[in-house]
């Protein structure tokens, strides 16, 4: 019960962080999707796609509501990148640690670019032709950094939760 409350608070805090901090402080529209997809990939790699899916969809929907976009779009893309991460997770785990971050960063960056393009298409314009390597490389770089940070934070968070849930805590 306590853990569920903490998880829900964390999801809400993440969504408010996206809408009220990242979107207000930085001009890059890629930043919050990159952070969100990094979390989706990290969850899918650490828990497995099937166990991660409900959490990923929950985070995505909350983020959709908080960030004023079309409800369902961030959640759909989060689920998509989580599935792809789960699908190629064997490659992630057998490869060298650095390559895992590169794979994950590529997935996150490409997912964020496609999310922006689809989002613009919903709004009546077409950004698909603007997707190029010139834009993809910084997005992938952001994805690598974000995945490294978010996977570390999630790992610490899960450790803290397991301690929090132990009978002797407090």
């Amino acid at each position: 019960m306590r853990i569920s409350v903490v998880r829900i608070v964390a999801v809400v805090a993440l969504s408010v962080l996206g809408a009220s901090v990242l979107n207000l402080t930085f001009s890059s529209p890629l930043l919050f999707p990159v952070v969100l997809f990094s979390i989706a990939v990290s969850l899918s790699l650490s828990r497995g796609f099937v166990r991660a899916l409900p959490v990923v969809v929950g985070i995505g929907l909350t983020a959709d509501i908080a960030t004023l976009g079309r409800i369902g779009l961030l959640a759909a893309f989060s689920a998509g990148v989580a599935y792809v991460a789960g699908f190629i997770s064997r490659r992630f785990t057998v490869e060298h640690g650095l390559m895992m971050h590169v794979f994950a960063g590529f997935l996150v960056g490409a997912g964020a670019l496609w999310f922006l393009a689809v989002s613009s298409w919903f709004d009546g314009s077409n950004l698909f032709p603007t997707i190029s390597w010139g834009r993809a490389v910084p997005a992938i770089g952001m994805g690598i950094v974000s995945f490294t940070v978010m996977s570390a934070i999630l790992s610490r968070f899960e450790q803290w939760l397991s301690y929090f849930d132990s009978p002797n805590a407090f």
Binding site: L53, G72, L73, A76, G80, Y83
Partner: peptide, 23 residues
């Protein structure tokens, strides 16, 4: 897994497409 992701993605993407303003 593929079946699950197809169902989940379709529902979420369909909802985003539908975009019901009151909801």
């Amino acid at each position: 897994k593929f079946f699950r992701i197809v169902i989940v993605f379709s529902i979420l993407f369909g909802f985003a497409w539908w975009n019901p303003a009151p909801v």
